[in-house]
């Protein structure tokens, strides 16, 4: 790649810190939320799903001051940058004091991947927190999707760690997805 004279350097990332809630997730402060845990209104077509989980640090201590954002396609595998019929595909949640989070949304469809491959349904995830200097990116796949076996991104992940990217459906129908930042069972994070 040739350097161009007008090349500009990226503005470096810095931590979100512990005190973002009154601006980014301001429900408890009476502020107007840009987005929250409810990603799809009743009017949006698709199968309703709920995802619940906790965020843990390297000692297994709950991370009670993280912000999690998801970005996803609709039931037909299409993205709606501007939102469509109540569906933006974007959700944002602050973890509770116990490290918990949840999203209520619709199950995304399969979508095109690299080199003509098809990607299994998934959510794209950003995690920001005190002690996290550069956003951590991961994905949430779903345990009941047969397409996981041929998903081109899961295929890049060592088999023994692949399970950290797959939300498991409980008997209550809720998908469970814990995020472990470090150590035993550490969630796979991506370099993008």
């Amino acid at each position: 790649m040739t350097e161009r004279k007008d090349d500009l350097g990226l503005t470096p990332s810095q931590t979100i810190g512990p005190f973002f809630a009154y601006a980014l997730t301001p429900r408890a402060y009476g502020g107007v939320e840009l987005a929250n845990e409810q990603v799809a209104t009743e009017a949006v077509a698709g199968e309703r799903i709920s995802i619940r989980g906790h965020v843990y640090d390297g000692d297994g201590v709950p991370v009670g001051d993280a912000m999690i954002e998801i970005w996803q396609a609709d039931a037909d595998g299409r993205f709606h940058a501007q939102g469509n019929a109540g569906f933006t595909g974007f959700g944002r949640a602050e973890t509770t004091a116990e490290g918990g989070y949840h999203f209520d949304t619709i199950r995304p469809g399969a979508l095109p991947g690299p080199n003509g491959a098809q990607q299994a349904p998934h959510l794209t995830v950003s995690l920001f927190a005190r002690g996290v200097l550069t956003r951590l990116a991961t994905r949430i796949y779903f345990s009941d999707e047969t397409g996981n076996e041929t998903d081109p991104v899961l295929a890049l992940v060592p088999a023994e760690r692949r399970g950290t990217l797959i939300a498991k459906r409980g008997t209550d129908g809720v998908f469970r997805f814990d995020i472990r930042l470090q150590g035993e069972g550490e969630t796979v994070f991506f370099d993008m």
Partner: peptide
């Protein structure tokens, strides 16, 4: 920066190809 000690991933990041999931975003 001490808060990173238990919060920074210890495993290498996996290089992700840029698919529609990454090259799109909310506006």
């Amino acid at each position: 920066y001490k808060s990173t000690l238990k919060r920074a991933p210890s495993q290498p990041l996996i290089l992700l190809p840029h698919t529609l999931s990454e090259t799109s975003g909310p506006v």
